[in-house]
Amino acid sequence: MASLDVVTYRTPLSRIWDAFVVIFLALYLIWTLLPIFIMFMSSFKDLLAAFQLPPVGDFTKIGIFFDFVPTTKHYYNLFFNIGFSTYFFNSVSAALGSALVSVVLGSMAAYALSRVEFKGKADLFFWIISTRMAPVVAVLVPLYAIFRSFDLVGTRTGLILAYTTFNLPFAIWILKGFFDNVPYAIEEASMVDGSTRFQAFRTILPLVAPGIGAFLVLCVLFAWNDFLFANIIGSGGAKTLPVATRELVQPQNIQWGSIMAAGVVTTLPMMFLGLLIRKYLVTGLTMGAVRE
């Protein structure tokens, strides 16, 4: 299965190996998709149907999983009884708000950092990246104390600021790598033509636009999937989807149907966005360290 065009002879051993690889990949495929599939199916199941299991050890009755009458009542419940439309809006505005702030400020700073050398640049850079790598809970402790004194707890503004703590360093760090790949000669040519430095900056923006767009999407994804900040900083007035979903878990009554539906509502848009920026995903998720 190696990527070589060299002629290889088929020995019995290599046949066994190939069979093993195919079986392994098939199992891994099932393993990857099954939780998502079960979530999806259970969101359309009545609670009793979702709880049905075959007797222990009886593998012939697995078909019981598909034995149900589909219902959309959990989705109806989410949006019309629990107020998920508000939480959806909170999620969208907090994620998009912080992504926009981060990418706009980030691309300006990244461009400058890519074009100028100064003393202490490496230190500034390390400070920026270590902000991004700090454990969320450790950041949360002082941020909560500060936001409490500014009455920012439970507001969308507070949440946007909180998300910016990890999105802005990410944007600066990754976009710097992007600007580094744009030759300075382009700006120089534009300045020879009489444009100012700022206009020159604008002339190269279209070149990095796809990258900036992709990392904007990635910032949205990071913020959307956050739970800790939203749980503490957003608690009360700015509940986001993961927090609202978590709150469906109550000691006496876990509303599994609604949880599964909420999971689908939270996950599907992000899977779509992930596919959209598939090309930039490796670079983004490794903070620019690995390029495809």
Binding site: Y28, L29, T32, L33, P35, I36, I38, M39, S42, L221, W224, N225, D226, F227, L241, P242, V243, T245, R246, V249, W256, I259, M260, A262, G263, T266, T267, M270, M271, L273, G274, L275, R278, L281, L285
Partner: peptide, 20 residues
């Protein structure tokens, strides 16, 4: 493309699904 689908899921949601 299929394999990377779980990475897009919010960890809090993933936790709940696996709890189930």
């Amino acid at each position: 493309t299929i394999f990377l689908m779980p990475m897009m899921m919010a960890p809090a949601i993933a936790g709940l699904i696996w709890y189930f």
